[in-house]
Nucleic acid binder design. Structure first.
Length: 322
DNA sequence: CTTCGACCTGGATAT
DNA sequence: CGGACCAGGTCGAAA
């Protein structure tokens, strides 16, 4: 890796100046529950209570204690050199930087959304939620990058988490820019759309063990590049839920469930309720949703989503994450 | 409109 | 009614 290898940082105590914190009670955010629940596949518990991963083309380690969220950001490999060359005012640069990293983190965890009040409302409307809520406080929906979210969830179809995580790791290694090394372990950015549109992308993805999803990933990358573009995809954040869903479902490898995941986890559609086989079971067994068919047809899918939206309200997707 | 089978791969389980 | 190749599905074809 680098000639001067960086080390993972697990706690602020060792070197407090490299860490910052945001006020954030445990009822508002439980890092362990949110980062390991399959919303994002890019976080790793680097030591007990410390989560390391890539966010916004930077490598971070996060940790929380009491009512604070602590974070540290690792520099890129040649950042030292760049700073010397620039010969600017370091204090000023650092100050701008912390304002930005604070903002990135607050945005990613959507900390302006008050979770406690939402939990109270969902608990009041739903006795079954009430039982679960006590064991799972602080579960909130991440606001992820739409490109990363889309291509990650294309990989989830008929698949399991351990393999999905490994696939995405290999995707980033093969197609993404290397950011830095921590304890000799390389970290890569999620590739931009343009990196996935090459003629050989599908073959390379197959070689990385993507199976039939290789065609979906390269096909969707191509379709977006030739259509609405990365900007257009991101602009779906301001579009109505129905339109965003319709656009996404036109992409290869994107059906109702993946589209809803992308809507909820990256496009600000809090009412989107991704219905997987697990949710379908729960809806029938625990909530007694009566449905004609024995399989998850498009109509049944819609009805289950409508049921939970009726029960939990406009942030039904957030409640379902719990 | 619903139902079916195929689809890459590897984990978990049972021969 | 219990157990089963299935796992956080999607696609295309067929009745």
């Amino acid at each position: 890796c680098s000639p001067t290898p960086m080390k993972l940082r697990d706690a602020p105590s060792a070197c407090p100046s490299l860490w910052r914190c945001l006020p954030c009670p445990l009822a508002e955010l439980r890092l362990d529950l949110v980062l390991s629940s399959g919303q994002s596949f890019r976080w790793w518990e680097s030591s007990p209570g410390a989560w390391t991963g890539v966010l916004g083309d930077r490598v971070w380690t996060l940790r929380q204690d009491g009512d604070r969220l602590w974070y540290t950001v690792y520099g890129e490999e040649d950042e030292h050199k760049k700073e010397e060359e620039r010969d600017g005012c370091p204090a000023r640069a650092a100050k701008l930087d912390v304002a930005e990293t604070d903002r990135i983190l607050r945005d990613y965890f959507q900390l302006d959304v008050g979770l406690s009040a939402l939990y109270r409302a969902w608990a009041a409307a739903d006795p079954l939620f009430r039982k679960v809520a006590n064991d799972f406080p602080g579960v909130r929906v991440l606001r992820q990058d739409p490109v990363e979210c889309l291509f990650s969830f294309i990989c989830t179809s008929n698949n399991h988490i351990s393999r999905i995580t490994a696939m995405i790791e290999r995707l980033c290694q093969a197609f993404g820019r290397r950011l830095c090394c921590l304890d000799s372990r390389p970290f890569h950015a999620f590739p931009p759309l343009s990196a996935l549109t090459g003629a050989d992308a599908e073959a390379r993805l197959r070689a990385l063990g993507f199976g039939y999803r290789a065609k979906f990933v390269s096909g969707s990358a191509r379709a977006i590049a030739e259509g609405l573009g990365t900007e257009g995809l991101c602009q779906l954040r301001t579009a109505p839920y129905a339109e965003a869903r319709r656009v996404l479902c036109a992409l290869p490898g994107v059906g109702a469930k993946v589209a809803d995941c992308v809507c909820l986890l990256s496009l600000d559609k809090a009412e989107a309720v991704p219905v997987d086989t697990h949710v379908w079971h729960i809806a029938r067994q625990r909530y007694g949703v009566a449905l004609g068919g024995k399989s998850l047809t498009p109509r049944a899918y819609q009805e289950i989503g409508d049921f939970f939206r009726g029960l939990w309200g406009p942030r039904a997707g957030w409640a379902q994450a719990v």
